[in-house]
Simulated assay, not measured.
Amino acid sequence: MMKKTKIVQSYWSKAYKNSPNSGWAFRETHYMSWALSCLQLKQFYDEIELITDSEGADLLINKLHLPYTSYLTTLDKLNDENPAIWTLGKIAAYEMQQEPFIHVDGDIYIWKPFPKRIENAGIVAQNIEKNYTFGINLLGEMRNMDFFFPFLPSTGDMYESNMGIVGGHDLDFFKDYCSLVYNFLDSNRDKLESLSGGVSSVNTIMEQYLMYEYAKRRGKEVEYLIPNLPSSRMYKLTLFSLLPIDVSFIHNIGSNKKREITSDRLARLLYCAYPQYYAHVSNLLKQKTV
């Protein structure tokens, strides 16, 4: 019997503390999101590894008591890095994997296991993003600022791989991809502060754009969880109201986190599905333990 796919989540405390409420409308939603994400993954997967730092382990393991089967505080090595480059925590998690894996962000909740084509693929990602205005403008700005790229940036349509989920069996590809990302970052550190969108705007290029382009140049096929998702339909990934019949996968992308109704619906979901965890998080907040 084939071993079930290992799920990986990563939590770099310094990056989360760098934005108000860790990107959510309310501080408590950040904790509830991590609880719901981990608990739903645990419904379908036996092995869930947490790659974090000492502070993250204290929060998610010691305080929230989330059922990770193992954890490592490897991300302590990022203490001297700029927390605005939040994707470094994820890249470090990919780089250290020694067996097939699927990395799942903490704002993703699943209601059924990933399809076998995803669990068994060499490289997987969530979906393709095509010609997003933010990405096109950023790439153009980087070209004008003479950013170093490991390959000639595309001048036609711009494609990126959304990496809400990412991973696969091709571990050599991920080692090489992570090296490429580090090379890109180290070659351009002196230019990051000058980006019109600030240092944090580099994350999508580092992670999503380089991933798509590198896989294409290596002739590697990427298996996408949602193969044909036009940008006009991305919002469907955030609709809790469609669970569990119409959708089985939710990803709270971008600015949706800052909507109060999102926090309300997420809290209600946690309360209904895991009332003991909801009560535990609420008590930690009342006691000001988190």
Rank of each mutant, 00 (worst) to 15 (best):
E99C: 13
I128L: 06
T238M: 13
D105K: 05
L266A: 11
L138H: 03
Q287G: 05
L72A: 03
E213Q: 07
D146C: 14
W12H: 12
T289E: 06
A267P: 09
S33F: 02
E221H: 15
C178D: 03
F151K: 06
I123D: 05
I51G: 11
Q276H: 07
S161D: 10
P244N: 11
L269S: 13
A279C: 08
N203E: 05
F149Y: 00
N79G: 08
P227W: 00
V124W: 06
K286H: 10
F173Q: 00
F148Q: 01
I253C: 14
N183I: 03
M32K: 13
T133E: 15
T87C: 05
H169W: 11
K90R: 04
I136S: 06
L242D: 15
K112C: 15
M163N: 10
R233I: 01
R143I: 15
P67L: 07
A279Q: 15
L60F: 06
S263G: 14
R217D: 04
L88K: 05
Y177G: 11
E221D: 11
S37P: 03
A279H: 15
Y271P: 12
C178H: 02
M158S: 02
K4R: 08
A57Y: 07
L185Q: 07
K4D: 14
G106F: 00
E95Q: 07
N131D: 01
K77R: 09
S248I: 05
N18E: 02
V290I: 13
G168R: 06
L225K: 01
R265H: 14
R117C: 11
E160A: 12
T73M: 13
P153M: 03
D176R: 11
T73V: 09
T29C: 03
L270P: 11
Y209E: 05
Y159M: 04
G135A: 10
L41V: 08
P153L: 02
S231V: 10
L210R: 07
P275C: 08
A25P: 08
G164S: 04
T69Q: 09
L59A: 09
Q208F: 10
I253P: 13
N131F: 07
T29D: 08
F184A: 02
R189T: 10
Y177H: 05
M32D: 09
S19E: 01
K257V: 02
H251C: 10
P150Q: 03
E223A: 05
N144C: 15
R218H: 06
S201Y: 15
V247E: 08
L66I: 10
K130P: 08
E55F: 13
A25T: 07
R143C: 14
A84D: 03
S263P: 13
A84S: 04
E47Y: 09
R218E: 12
T29F: 00
F149H: 02
L243T: 12
L171Q: 10
M158K: 04
K14E: 13
R268M: 13
Y177V: 01
I128W: 09
K116R: 14
P67V: 12
D246P: 14
I61V: 00
G164K: 04
R217T: 02
R233L: 02
Q276L: 09
E193T: 11
Y182N: 08
T29N: 04
Y235L: 02
P275H: 01
W111M: 12
F148N: 07
W24R: 06
T155S: 06
I253K: 14
F249G: 00
